[in-house]
Structures are given as structure tokens and as C-alpha cells.
């Protein structure tokens, strides 16, 4: 069982993540009404918010330290927050600012914070192989660091994931695959894309430990993840851990969700993990005003990050040409040299 202070920490991360998504939603929709135009407003492009996924983030990351590696998918904010990614710079990145984590080049699906070993990929399941690679590096260097790859239940039919599972199992690598099962892959319900209800059973075929947490509950995730991370850290190999979460918003902002039965959205609401975690705190004797205090601190932190981010400078257009290489070749990339190409003498 997590200690009271651990519970408080998890709660704080969870409510920070929730508040963050709610505030980003507001910011994102600015300039996008009444017509939803994806390229308008202070945050353009796709935005995948993770409200309802918090338990998977805080329950696992509670066991991690900065040197452990996490790879996240297209829906990364909650995991980034729980992993300790710099919230101001992450927010600046989402607002496309020069002081963002990637100087405005990455955007919300491509967040990198090497300080806490966090990375993302917007291509489904493609964070899995790099997590295996990080685990391989830890093993070769004899550290006890672990790697965690997050993916959705829709991603478990992707080759990159299955190949990673095999490789990790074969070499007993210190990696944990965390499948966030929110029942949907955009509009496709789980039952339409796999015959296997319990995704953790995928592990059996690779002689890897598999486990599933059926309730959307940070403490249950904490328990299961404690075992999985411990197994990895102690050199006993990988785990595939599937966790039931819920999608409280559309797949991305602007998703009409016409495919989704109302009852399903209501279920997501009813089974929310945050009130559950709050109950746990109360059961451990944490007073209401303490809980309120945590919430306020979380809200302030989110607000601070957003205010800071929006105050940051836009990147200079010329910066588009920097960073494709670490050792950029001279004069690269070749730029259109308008006016230089008069054929002249042939």
C-alpha cells in the first residue's frame, strides 16, 4: 500500500493532470468557435487530452525516478506531468513558443525532456522499441534503471509492440509496457479490433509477465506497477501491464463522437479515478481542507505554467532551419536562392 504521503503525491499529480487538460481544452477552443477550425486559435493542430487516464500515469510513475526512461504516445500530458517533465516548458511547447521543450518544433505529440528521460511518439506503438532500447542500455551498463513504454489498447495489435515484447522477454530487459485501456481507438471499440478482452494475455505468447488492473484506480495501479517495476529493477525481466482507464473527452479535440453511445460517456464519468483517490485520502484521515489545499496548489501550478507559456516569445522563422542534425553540415539545408538561376550562356 502507498503511504499517506505517497497517496497525497499521487493525488496532486492526478489533479494537476486533470486541471491541465481542462485548461488546455479551454485555451485550444479559443478562436475555434462557432466553426471548429483546427488551424485557428492559440494552440493549433491536433490535441489529444488524457482526462480520465490519470490513474495509469500516477500509479506507475510513483515508482520511477528521473533516471528511469518513459516513452509516451500521442496522448502524453498526464504521463509527462507524473514523470516530472518541466510543466512551464512543456506548456510553452504546446503553445508553440521558443522556450518550449523543443523550441516550438515538436508540439504536443512530440515532447522531450531529457532531464527526466521522457520522450513521445505520435506514431502508434512506436515508443515501444526505444523503451526496449533504453532498457537494453541500462542492462549493458549495469544500472538498475528501468524503462516504461506507454501505449493505448488500440496499439497492442501493432507489430512494433509485439516485436518489442518478444525482444524484451528474450533478453530479460528491465522494461514495463503499460497499456492504457480506454476501450476506444478513436471510433473503434476494442471488440472490433481484437478478440482478446484482456490485453495482458498478449504477454503469454512471449513468456513475459502479464497483468491487468480492471478498475480505474490509482492505488490498484500503484500495487501492480510496484511489482512490475520492482521485477524490472531487480533484473527479473519485463512486464506487460494493462490498466483500465476512461476517455472523458473526444479522441482529439473536435471529435464529434457520434460513434459513441451516451451510456459509455456516462460510465467514464461515473468510474472516474479521481474521486476514488480522494476517498482513499479521506479514509487515511486526510482532512477536506488539506485535499482542497492540494487542489489549489495544482490549479495554481497549471495556471502559472499557462500564463508563463503564453508570455513567451514565438520562434523566429529562421529557427526552422536549425536542429535537424546535432552536427549540422555547413550551409545546410540548401535554401531556395531566388534570382540565381538565370540560364545565361548554355
Amino acid at each position: 500500500m502507498p503511504s499517506v504521503s505517497e497517496l497525497q503525491e499521487m493525488y496532486e499529480q492526478a489533479v494537476t493532470a486533470r486541471r491541465y487538460e481542462e485548461r488546455l481544452q479551454e485555451e485550444y477552443l479559443e478562436g475555434k468557435q462557432p466553426a471548429f477550425d483546427i488551424s485557428a486559435g492559440p494552440i493549433p493542430g491536433e490535441l489529444h487530452l488524457a482526462a480520465g487516464h490519470e490513474a495509469a500515469a500516477v500509479g506507475v510513475c510513483q515508482h520511477l525516478r528521473d533516471s528511469d526512461v518513459v516513452t509516451a504516445p500521442h496522448r502524453p500530458h498526464h504521463v509527462a506531468i507524473a514523470k516530472g517533465v518541466d510543466l512551464r516548458r512543456m506548456t510553452a511547447e504546446i503553445f508553440g513558443r521558443r522556450t518550449g521543450l523543443s523550441k516550438g518544433k515538436g508540439g504536443h505529440m512530440h515532447l522531450y525532456d531529457p532531464e527526466v528521460n521522457f520522450a513521445c511518439s505520435g506514431i502508434i506503438a512506436q515508443g515501444c522499441p526505444p523503451a526496449v532500447g533504453a532498457a537494453l542500455a541500462a542492462k549493458k551498463r549495469n544500472t538498475d534503471d528501468v524503462a516504461v513504454a506507454y501505449l493505448g489498447e488500440g496499439a497492442i495489435s501493432q507489430g512494433a509492440f509485439l516485436e518489442s515484447l518478444n525482444l524484451a522477454g528474450l533478453h530479460d530487459l528491465p522494461v514495463v509496457f503499460v497499456v492504457e485501456d480506454n476501450d476506444w481507438a478513436i471510433s473503434m471499440p476494442k471488440g472490433r479490433v481484437t478478440d482478446v478482452d484482456d490485453g495482458s494475455r498478449r504477454a503469454d505468447g512471449f513468456a513475459v509477465h502479464g497483468d491487468r488492473v480492471d478498475v480505474d484506480d490509482a492505488v490498484a495501479v500503484y500495487e501492480a506497477a510496484g511489482e512490475a517495476v520492482g521485477r524490472a529493477r531487480n533484473g527479473n525481466g519485463p512486464t506487460l501491464l494493462e490498466v483500465q482507464v476512461h476517455r472523458r473527452m473526444g479522441h482529439f479535440m473536435g471529435d464529434p463522437e457520434s460513434y459513441r453511445p451516451e451510456a459509455d460517456a456516462e460510465r467514464a464519468e461515473a468510474l472516474d479515478s479521481i474521486p476514488r483517490l480522494e476517498e482513499r485520502l479521506r479514509a487515511h484521515g486526510v482532512e477536506d481542507d488539506e485535499i482542497e489545499g492540494i487542489r489549489e496548489r495544482a490549479n495554481d501550478r497549471v495556471e502559472d505554467a499557462i500564463v508563463w507559456a503564453k508570455d513567451q516569445p514565438q520562434p523566429d522563422p529562421e529557427e526552422a532551419y536549425e536542429d535537424a542534425f546535432t552536427q549540422q553540415p555547413e550551409g545546410w539545408p540548401e535554401r531556395p536562392e531566388v534570382a540565381a538561376t538565370d540560364g545565361g550562356e548554355r
Binding site: 508553440g96 516550438g104 508540439g107 535554401r335
Partner: peptide
């Protein structure tokens, strides 16, 4: 130009 497409508006517009 030969760079991955950047995210921020001024950068994408540039390329």
C-alpha cells in the same frame, strides 16, 4: 526545405 515539418505557426509557415 529539407527539415522535418516543424510545429509552431511561424516555423511551419516558413517551410
Amino acid at each position: 526545405p529539407d527539415v522535418p515539418i516543424p510545429y509552431a505557426r511561424p516555423l511551419e509557415e516558413e517551410v
